[in-house]
Structures are given as structure tokens and as C-alpha cells.
Design a protein around this nucleic acid. Structure first.
Lengths: 209, 209
DNA sequence: GTCTATAGCGAGATAGAC
DNA sequence: GTCTATCTCGCTATAGAC
């Protein structure tokens, strides 16, 4: 505690860049926007980070890690049942994405533009696909069913955050009204998963408690 | 039939622009890319469409209509039960998005950058929120539950197309392998909806058959 | 380390020949 | 209508004073 209250110049640039890149994406973001947002000077961005692209990559890496670690950290926690793990993932994503609404879209656009780079970096792939739970899911005979379940679970959890803007505009909801829906959704998803639990139950025999 | 086999210059530019904009988005797309893709000349883009932005808007409008009409057209079809309508929507989106994988992301990025413009244009909002079925969903006392159901249904249906690249890379799937999963998913979703049908059933009393 | 001024280039748009 | 050549501007990056 009691770290420096006023952030270093480097941190101020990073914070500003994070905001701008997450809002606009790489191409539409201008280094001038970042300079203005940080209250600092254009030249300092290159002094500290060498180039716009380098700064972008640093932020993108950090965000990829934050995002995927939510799943990675919980996936093989054998102290929890599958449903408890699912619940924990839902809650952690809800906490994160209420704070950083632009995050899913930011990561998607990066992966969209640069899929091979995404696959090779950060050994996210190894950690995810190498996890015991995922291996169980994918090595079984009903691999396809498991893939559908995974897509559905993540869809139910993440899709509302991805289309947040669309729904707010279509239904004239304020940000805080939609935030409330997203908060309530933790329970809705938990109930939904319980209802279809027999199905889940079949899918990961080794892991169930 | 027997329309001109070789498309007009205008159509060739539009086709090329569609491809490039859907791949790269507005900012990253260059008019030079579009010229090259069409096999035509840079100057012709401005001759026919006046500006990059104008060309982009034309394409974006068309795509918004195509995308939202899938829901709008089926929503109030009283000849179908709610489940049959859901099924039809799933199948129509699957057909469309197998052909145009970049479409959801393209529309999302537009709405992300320009939410107010999206809301005001094309009276998509009026058509969607004005539909009898949606009004029933939203005017009831259990409005919140219905919103959750809608988010879940669309999430299960559309999310796999949105994260297509991510899953292909993480699980080393070819395009055609994932296409097969998406095709099989029509049935998976139909079954899932049947399982949770009692819930659906409560939600739209006026409409059920 | 921080700033101002500017170099250098890439991209959209257009003039003008055919 | 279609092309080549070019104008112009806005952006990233950097030189150089403090």
C-alpha cells in the first residue's frame, strides 16, 4: 500500500492507450488521441514505447492473459464440481466485463485480424487445450456434444456482454439498467445449468464430484 | 434469368468492397485494397461512390437489413409455434453465417463505433421492438426473465459464429470441420430448446399454439 | 525526461488524357 | 467510363532544444 499516488509517465500513457485502443481498435486509434487522453505529449509515446504498434501489442497481450486466465485458473480445480467451476467462471467474467465492457470486442477484433499470431503467442492454447478437463471433454467419444456444450455455456455467459450496445440501443436501456440485468444473469445461468445438469453430467465423467 | 454474366463496374466495386470491409473493417480497409480486389482502378471508386465512407455506409446498411430481417420476418408469424419460429431463426442464421462468416463481427464493430447512428437508421428498432411477440415479451410482469431467455437463445445461436476463429485456432479445426459442427448445431439447439420448453412456454402465453 | 517543430509517408481524393 | 499521375492532408515517428 501507499504506492505513489500520481502514476509515472509510462503508466499514464499505458492507461490512456488502454482506454483508446479498447474503444476504437488499433487502426482507428490515433497516437494523438492517446497523447490527449493522457494529458501528455505525442513524442513521449515513442520515447517510452517506441511505436504505436508496440504499445498496442503490450496492452493486447495483457488483456489476452487476463481474459483467458479466468477459464484456465478454474478449469482444473478438482476441489469444485463441474457446476461450481462453471459458476465461478460466470461470476469472474461478469465481474471483469462489467468493469471492462469493451474487452471482449477488443480481443475478438485482434484475433479476427491476426488469428495465427493469437494462436502462437502466450501459450494460451497449450494451457487451455492441455488442461485435464478439456482433454477429457475432447478425447471422449462424444467430443462433438461437448463442443456444443462449451459453445453454449460461453455463449450464454459472454454473448450479452458482446452485444451490450445493441441491446441497450434497441430497448432504450441505460447502462446501469443493463448492468443490473447482467448482474442478475449470474443466477439465471446457474439455474439454467442446473436444469440441464444431467446432460453436463454425462459429458465429463472423470471430473464429476 | 440470363442477366448479364459479367457484372457491371459498379457491382464489381461493391462486391470487392464488401469482401474487404467485412474482412478488415472500415479503418483498416484501404480503397487501394478494394481497387485491387475488383481488378479495377482506384479512381473508379470515387467516380461511382464519391467516397470510401459513402461506399462503406451503403454496404453496411444492406448488411444490417439482411441480418435483422431474419428475426423480423419470422417473429410474428402466427402460423408457427414459438419453438418453430426459434427453429426457423436458427436455420436461417446458420445458412447465412456459414456463407458470410465475417458478418456478425462487421455489424458489431459498426454498432460499437456508432451506436446512435445504428439506433436511428433503418427503423430496425421500430420493427423489432414494435413486433407483437417482442411487445408481449417486454410488457409482461416477467420482462426480465424474457430478456434473459432472448439473450440466451441468441447467444447459443450466434456466439459460435462470432468466436469461430478463436475456436478453430485453439482446437486446430479446419474451416470445414467447424462448419460441420455449426451445421450439426441446428439440431443441438432445437433439442436444447425443447428441454427448456416449459420455461419458454410460460414466457409468451399470448403467442403459444 | 519532456517538449515543439517537422520530416516522411501512406491514404483518400481528383485532374485530365484517352 | 476508364485510366495514370498527382495533389493534399493527416498520421506516425523523430530531431533537437530545454
Amino acid at each position: 500500500m501507499a504506492k505513489k499516488l500520481d502514476k509515472s509517465t509510462e503508466d499514464r500513457i499505458k492507461a490512456a492507450a488502454e482506454k483508446i485502443f479498447l474503444e476504437k481498435g488499433f487502426s482507428a486509434a490515433r497516437t494523438r488521441d492517446i497523447a490527449e487522453e493522457s494529458g501528455l505529449n505525442l513524442a513521449l509515446i515513442n520515447y517510452y514505447f517506441r511505436s504505436k504498434e508496440n504499445l498496442y501489442n503490450i496492452i493486447m497481450m495483457e488483456k489476452l492473459i487476463v481474459f483467458f486466465n479466468i477459464i484456465i485458473d478454474v478449469l482444473d480445480d478438482v476441489n469444485l464440481t463441474i457446476l461450481e467451476r462453471a459458476d465461478k467462471i460466470v461470476n469472474k467474467y461478469t465481474d471483469l466485463l462489467l468493469k471492462e465492457p469493451n474487452l471482449p470486442f477488443f480481443l475478438l477484433s485482434e484475433i479476427q485480424q491476426n488469428p495465427d499470431f493469437f494462436a502462437s503467442k502466450l501459450n494460451i492454447k497449450e494451457k487451455l487445450v492441455g488442461s485435464k478437463t478439456i482433454r477429457n471433454l475432447l478425447l471422449e467419444e462424444n467430443k462433438k456434444e461437448n463442443m456444443h456444450f462449451l459453445l453454449s455455456f460461453l455463449g450464454i455467459t459472454l454473448f450479452p456482454f458482446i452485444v451490450r450496445n445493441v441491446f441497450e440501443k434497441l430497448y432504450d436501456l441505460t447502462e446501469s439498467e443493463f448492468s443490473q440485468i447482467l448482474n442478475e444473469r449470474r443466477v439465471f445461468i446457474a439455474n439454467l445449468l442446473t436444469e440441464i445438469y444431467p446432460k453436463v453430467n454425462q459429458l465429463t465423467p472423470e471430473d464429476n464430484v
